[in-house]
Amino acid sequence: MTKYIKVAQPSISKEAAGELESLQLHYSEKSEILKAAHEGKVGALKRLAEEDPDTLMSAIVNGFTVKKTPHEEIADYYFEAQKNMSIIGEDYEGTVNYQYELGKTEAVEFVLKELGLQVLGVNLDIVE
């Protein structure tokens, strides 16, 4: 029976992921990709190579996941609270659970307004 070891994939920035994917299209050997990342121009992948070479090597060998931007994390938090409110339903608006989720959405809206930030889908309309 073959046993498989699940290896954790590192999380890297969206910019570094794009640069790494581009290198993977041009080079077939992992050592060539690593060398190109180290010798690259200033960029997210070059910074990762200098600051955290172990994470870069792990991303090349094991694959990677893309980190969410702070805006995406805020939007996810907000939309999760809205989803929970719709699951609870308007008939239960007075319940603690509904009020808790409502408080989360209102807090996000308030903080974004006070800081003058805009997050797509939260306080910035999606334009089609």
Rank of each mutant, 00 (worst) to 15 (best):
T69R: 10
A49W: 00
K30H: 08
V66M: 03
L115P: 04
I88G: 02
L48Y: 02
T105L: 01
V61E: 15
K113N: 14
T69N: 06
L34T: 01
I126K: 14
K46T: 08
K67C: 12
Y92H: 14
M85W: 00
E93S: 15
K41Q: 09
A17Y: 06
L124W: 06
I126L: 10
E93C: 10
G103P: 09
Q9D: 03
A49T: 00
A37R: 01
K6H: 11
K67P: 03
Y27L: 07
D52E: 12
H38T: 12
Y4H: 06
V119K: 02
D52R: 04
V7R: 09
K68A: 13
E93I: 05
M85C: 13
A36N: 12
A36I: 06
Q99S: 07
S11C: 01
I60W: 02
I87Q: 01
A37D: 00
P70C: 05
Y78F: 15
Y4L: 13
G40T: 03
G103T: 08
K14E: 11
S86M: 03
E90K: 14
L115G: 07
Y92D: 14
L120P: 00
N123T: 07
A8R: 14
L124N: 10
E106P: 03
E32V: 04
K3N: 08
F110Y: 13
G116P: 05
F110E: 10
V96S: 07
G43C: 01
E50W: 03
T65V: 13
A17C: 08
V61F: 05
K67G: 03
V111F: 05
E93F: 09
Y100R: 13
I87N: 02
D125P: 01
V122Q: 10
G63R: 03
K67M: 14
G43W: 00
E15C: 04
A107N: 10
L20K: 08
Q9L: 07
K113S: 14
V42S: 14
S22W: 11
G89V: 07
V66A: 10
T95E: 08
L120T: 13
F110L: 12
S31N: 11
A16T: 05
R47D: 13
A8M: 11
V42A: 15
E50L: 12
K68L: 14
S58F: 08
K14C: 04
G18M: 10
I60P: 00
T95N: 04
S22G: 07
M57L: 11
K104E: 03
L45R: 05
E109T: 09
L102F: 07
G63M: 10
P70V: 09
Q82P: 01
Q118N: 03
E114K: 15
T95W: 05
K14L: 13
L23C: 09
M57G: 04
E21K: 14
E73M: 14
Q9F: 01
Y98C: 05
D76Q: 15
S31K: 12
Y77G: 01
V127I: 15
K83G: 07
E50M: 09
V122I: 09
L102K: 14
E73S: 07
K6N: 06
